[in-house]
């Protein structure tokens, strides 16, 4: 049996309740059930998580690195999109 027969899966782990699932890596598995079990064995053996998501790598739609300049660079000089750009009147207190 060879890995080339098994699709690649991306693994997301939630480290504790309340936090979001975070990408931790990938693995090979024949189907979704095996992917979850393999993820349990490969990525949570040191108590890293309380919940696992797996998704076929092929199902992930990603932005292209070649588009980096027009996708992300324009945000560079838009400091006013950060809440910290604005002065908060003292009456408002902490937000």
């Amino acid at each position: 049996m060879s890995n080339k027969d098994w699709p690649l899966w991306e693994v997301f782990i939630r480290s504790k309740s309340g936090l979001a699932h975070k990408h931790v890596g990938s693995l090979h598995a024949a189907d979704a059930k095996m992917a979850v079990e393999n993820a349990r064995d490969v990525y949570t053996r040191r108590m890293e998580g309380v919940s696992i998501w797996v998704v076929k790598s092929a199902d992930i739609v990603a932005s292209s690195p070649a588009d980096k300049d027009f996708m992300f660079d324009p945000a560079n000089d838009k400091v006013y999109r950060h809440p910290t750009f604005y002065e908060i009147p003292p009456e408002v207190g902490h937000m």
Partner: peptide, 12 residues
């Protein structure tokens, strides 16, 4: 192990 994932599973 036959594949890396199973290798780790059995070692666990």
């Amino acid at each position: 192990g036959p594949v890396l994932e199973e290798d780790i599973a059995l070692s666990n």
